[in-house]
Design a protein around this nucleic acid. Structure first.
Lengths: 340, 340
DNA sequence: ATTTAGCACTCAAGGTTTCAGAGTGCTAAC
DNA sequence: GTTAGCACTCTGAAACCTTGAGTGCTAAAT
């Protein structure tokens, strides 16, 4: 649908604009090596490209700037696989070669390297292992009427929840409760914990004292409390380096949306497998509609664990960013696969 | 050293400037209710105040603006105790009346209410209880060569650390190790943990197999790893609402410094007891020298637990902020005293 | 039938000028 | 000591040029 030459012109405009953030004129394009037409010819092509919606003018007599449709075409059809520099690969390499046995650290460092390499803002949705099962539950009484339950999963994840305990509940009874829970719940997939808590175990505990029941009620509530999603961001200030964000209002609204972690988490969680690019208006969140968001997923075997993403201006180094995300997501997958 | 009338004029200038962020002229001052002199007289007084360094002009024929010295004088001598509105008190009240048994939540909500009430950025340094003792230690083996140690303190704080284990180490031995550690370490103040780990216990364990020693070495390392300070911030975007920060560069440098949590934590930790106001250049961190930082401490009995702070422009509503911090720090202290 | 040179036209950005308004400092009168 | 009056200063906005980059169109060249 586009002629070879139109594509060539579009490519130059996009490549150049990504570098300079300045509108590109016909003369500038004509000077490019692999372009062998006069500015006038290029102007004709540009007029067509504009009519088709791939490029825009910032004002009547300005050079051209890629439109979102233009970027979309670029990402879908024109993007050449980017060969990362040795330096970039080295930085990623070094992130993973240090012995780390905590996923938090791995993810944090990944976020850091992502934002350092790209000068955009990196966002990582921490791993959610759906096959996770409960490995052990432990209850420690803190005061007369409070206690803390500690859960350890087979993936080594540790969580704790505070809950109330009737003052009449004895420490021995608490231990008994723990034993029962361990008996019944160890090995249960976390996703099934809820039904287990309400079914079998609840029934069984009714045989004991009312204190048992009350304690169990508190505990159940604490355990079911939705655990906050783990979102790791880095390079938040990088956005301000971009010339298109030299405007306080844009920054303000963008920062506000970044504080809404649950929205971001939802966005990343529903991003689907593999690399996905959302350009400008394609983004659901209004505050992000001047940005592009590129997401990639990492996984354990076949199961998708989490998402890594980069947020930057629509004028983004798409091909480089995609390469980086590709490399990093597979490195992350490797790491997790080596553990579980 | 300042005459009554000079003080009056200074007060009006500061009060007015805090509200409007605009330079104040002699005419505007003369119009104020409790001022009964002509603009000309006021101009004379202002010339004196300027010579003394309490106020400044933004240009030759502009109105006056308070200098940092002026704010300092205001904070030290002029500030009247601010009576918080019922609405404000209500918001604070509501923050604390909900039943909460996790200090994280309490602190998070406090940070939120602080920034909501003031439209500045709130920073809270989480409680560090120095009398904290170890209540229980638990080790759970995760794989052939890794395990996680879970520490619970008498204050109900839970931490966990991952560490390596020699593959030849048996699970039974691990349990033995846990028993020994619990025997020796329970009740030990966290601050003395380090010496205990190196002294007594280390010696004792030498009697056992080399696996024991190796495991212990890994564990020790993991336990001593400095736990990151807990810093809670809220209302980071509020800064952008202030007209004096309608400048990207300032915001950028301020945000960058806010990301350096250890520096901020150090700043707050060394802020000393009670309310402290640092105005502009008085701040150590260069990026904060357009800001004022007001800190207050909360405590458990006599012992200082942590710090709450507000960061805003030097043109800050000092008296209101001080009142809010006063109320909130005592409410926080109350809460913690009711627990421990 | 393309491609290109030429040319008139447009617009943004930056510099100058002008003007009004707010505010000052000084002087002289009260 | 206080105040009215006045000349002076400076900012900020508006109006106006000027320049340069870039366009679209037309007509000639290929």
């Amino acid at each position: 649908m586009l002629t070879e030459r139109q594509i060539q012109v579009l490519q130059v405009i996009i490549d150049e604009f990504i570098q300079t953030a300045q509108p590109i004129g016909s003369r500038a394009i004509a000077k490019k090596e692999d372009i062998s037409f006069s500015p006038a010819t290029i102007r004709n092509e540009m007029a067509d490209l504009e009519e088709l919606g791939f490029i825009e003018k910032t004002h009547t007599s300005s050079g051209r700037v890629p439109s979102e449709k233009g970027y979309r075409f670029y990402v879908d059809n024109l993007m050449s696989p980017f060969r990362l520099s040795n330096q970039d690969m080295g930085m990623i390499q070094r992130t993973f070669e240090r012995e780390m046995i905590e996923f938090e650290k791995v993810v944090q460092k990944s976020a850091r390297v992502l934002s350092d390499l790209t000068n955009y803002t990196s966002i990582i949705l921490g791993p959610e292992v759906f096959e996770t099962t409960l490995k052990q539950i432990q209850i420690i009484s803190l005061s007369e009427h409070t206690a803390v339950a500690i859960l350890v999963t087979n993936t080594g994840h540790v969580e704790h929840r505070y809950f109330n305990v009737p003052t009449t509940m004895q420490t021995v009874d608490l231990e008994k409760l723990v034993n029962i829970l361990n008996d019944r719940l160890v090995g249960v997939p976390i996703v099934h914990l809820q039904q287990k808590l309400y079914g079998e175990v609840a029934q069984m505990l009714q045989r004991y004292s009312s204190d048992f029941e009350a304690t169990y009620a508190y505990l159940k509530e604490a355990l079911l409390e939705k655990q906050p999603v783990k979102l790791y961001m880095d390079g938040k200030t990088n956005i301000m380096l971009q010339p298109e964000f030299h405007d306080i209002d844009k920054i303000q609204s963008l920062y506000s949306v970044m504080e809404k972690e649950d929205q971001i988490a939802h966005l990343l969680r529903t991003s689907g497998k593999g690399i996905k690019v959302s350009i400008g208006q394609e983004n659901e969140l209004a505050a992000m509609q001047d940005c592009s968001l590129i997401t990639a997923t990492y996984s354990l075997g076949d199961e998708q664990l989490g998402t890594i993403a980069l947020l930057g201006p629509t004028r983004m180094e798409y091909s480089r960013v995609v390469s980086i995300l590709n490399v990093l997501s597979s490195r992350l997958s490797q790491k997790f696969n080596s553990w579980y």
